[in-house]
Amino acid sequence: MKCRRCRGPAVIDIRRHNAAFCRDCFLRHCREQVKRAIKDHEMIVPGDRVLVAVSGGKDSLALWDLLAELEIEADGLYLGLGIGDYSDESGRHARDFAVARGRRLIEVDLREEYGFDVPVAAAATRRAPCGACGLSKRHLFNDVALREGYDAIATGHNLDDEAAVLLGNVLRWETGYLGRQAPVLPNAPGFVRKIKPLVRLGEREMAAYCVLTGIDYQVDECPMAQGNRHLGLKEVLDALEERSAGAKAAFLFGFYDRGREHFLEEAAAERGDLRPCPECGSPTTSELCAFCTLRDRATGENVPVHLRRAPVGD
């Protein structure tokens, strides 16, 4: 295969673009896609302080690198989730990357700072660990960004992640979640803007970006995520993509362009009247926010937990 741009030997083919690229042209392609996503969805304005949620995996490290390539200064936030060797190794990848590039990495350890970790929370709630993990991440990303005065939280959700979330929400007709699924969730009282600059790039492209730029990332899958619903949805979408290149992008971008608008009212109605959580101050529609409820249950407080099912993989 030859590179579509320079006609040199290609190193990667991207079937949905009907194209192959050499190393340099591929890296340029990645920068262009991120730049376009940021511009099209007005994710970042000049002067914004951006915080990247860094897991040590391919997506978040590639995102941090790509933002720097586009001259967007961003700090990183790593959450220690307490998932044994997996978390230890993930943290090492995040730290090594930050040190090598001279970036600021904020670290929050769930166990040290809140008295529980993901396995303990999963056991206490008798639910899949991904639910407790996602809830903790959403809460702490927002909490740290607010406390530290950041304007936007950038997450490494890519095209595959978003397409899988969309499929999961469509299969259950989660109309509220469908109304809230977007590349940008604007800031609101108590909420920092959430942006997904990788939404135009697939999972395979992000892994390729890391290999070709020498980014050492956590390759192993989270042991607690094995066999989860999100992976099942991705498997279905990958099978469709193999038969019909571009299916995932058409599904996701078609939704953004023509589908989401039909669910906005329900999303707003579901949000209800928000008030500050009496323990942490985060906006909530309940007496106590979901994170504080989870923490109380996981640390032995006698509080019943009813984890609301979050959008898959969010």
Binding site: M1, A10, V11, I12, D13, A20, G57, K58, D59, C130, G134, D160, D161, A164, E203, R204, M206, A207, V211, V219, E221, C222, A225, Q226, N228, H230, L231, K234, E235, D238, V312, G313, D314
Partner: peptide
Amino acid sequence: VTRDALLSDGDDIEIRPVTSGG
């Protein structure tokens, strides 16, 4: 390595999954 590449005896290749569980 792209899809059309021809692999020979002795080539040392890693097949790395790219899917992550969210």
